[in-house]
Amino acid sequence: MMNRSDHDLSCEEALGILEPYLDGELPAAEATRLRGHLERCAACAAELELAGKIQRELRSLPQLDCPPEVLERVRGSGRGEVVPFPSRRFRTGIRIAAAAAALALAVGGGALFLHIQQASDRPSPEEVAQATRQARLALAYVGKVTRRAGLDVRDDVLVKRLVAPATESVSRSLDGRRSEKEF
């Protein structure tokens, strides 16, 4: 018959005694067996580390006094049941579901964000009318500057000077009234 101390803990058993182990409530023999398991099982060791971290962070929170009436209600509704740690399979399922939910949220959220942004960017008729005036003003400045630079002699000059030599550098005034210069 196998000595109880020689019996290897399963992961489920190990996880079930992590909390009392952290609280220092586990008998020495059980603690030794758990440590043996943790040395061989990285996943359970990681769970222990996580649980320890959570416990430390919880303990670092400021202690607040619970109002007596709340305590009384808790005591009154308590049934004395011990809720065991959920199984690894159950927690894995929760993690997969959480991951799927997070990914769905990311994709859906991104699409929703862009949709809302585009909808909120939709200009009103007044804004379109103002934009039309601004666009015409922009073109008016193009017209003014090109006219001032002597580029409005004829449309065919514009075509010749602005379209045909798009890849060339033309460094001279196009207005006969002005001197031609290279620079």
């Binding site: 003003l137 073109l139 008016a140 017209g143 006219r147 580029l151 449309d155 075509v159 602005l162």
Partner: peptide
């Protein structure tokens, strides 16, 4: 862009008239 078209169009617009734009 058709630059010639821009210039031609632009000369039809009057800046003072469009100065109503903020």
């Amino acid at each position: 862009i058709d630059p010639a078209q821009l210039g031609r169009l632009g000369r039809h617009f009057d800046i003072p008239q469009l100065e109503k734009v903020p």
